[in-house]
């Protein structure tokens, strides 16, 4: 990293006021990392347990239905829906649309609220069906 200390730096994160668009942007990244690590590990465990047999599968389910397992499951659901909503938001931004300040803020809030609502609906359905 060769940089002359005499040259000015561009303004960075520290001087900006936090807004929903910044929060959604960095959350999207964090959620992606979470899904790729914790989410993928859980998915692989679930599939390999199912392929191994009933005993291994029931062991997975006993961990998944213990309360810390449920916390992880709810967190992963929220993580997925936030990454989904933020990804859809990015498809619109990639078209060059939605960069006006008010529109951008509104859709950033929409992304967050959408993720909460979808997570809630999913778990209501799971509890209602007794899965």
């Amino acid at each position: 990293m060769a940089r002359s200390s005499a040259r000015p730096l561009s303004p960075h994160l520290g001087i900006y006021k936090w807004g929903p668009h910044m929060a959604v942007s960095i959350l999207n990244r964090a959620m992606g990392v979470g899904l790729a690590t914790v989410g993928m590990a859980a998915l692989v465990w679930w599939l390999v347990a199912a392929a191994t047999g009933k005993e291994a599968y029931d062991l997975f389910m006993s961990w998944a239905s213990w309360w810390p397992g449920k916390v992880v499951a709810v967190a992963l659901t929220f993580t997925f829906f936030l990454h989904l909503c933020a990804g859809l938001r990015h498809f619109v931004l990639d078209l060059g649309a939605g960069f006006e300040l008010q529109t951008n803020r509104a859709w950033a809030w929409g992304t967050l609220i959408g993720a909460f609502v979808l997570t809630g609906l999913t778990w209501l359905l799971i509890i209602w069906k007794g899965l």
Binding site: M40, L43, L47, V48, A51, G53
Partner: peptide
């Protein structure tokens, strides 16, 4: 991580798809 998790997951799916699972 990519190929490791992908490999285990795909093998598990194919095993169930082709052979089913012991009870």
């Amino acid at each position: 991580w990519t190929f490791g998790t992908g490999g285990f997951a795909l093998y598990a799916i194919l095993k169930i798809a082709f052979a089913g699972t012991p009870a």
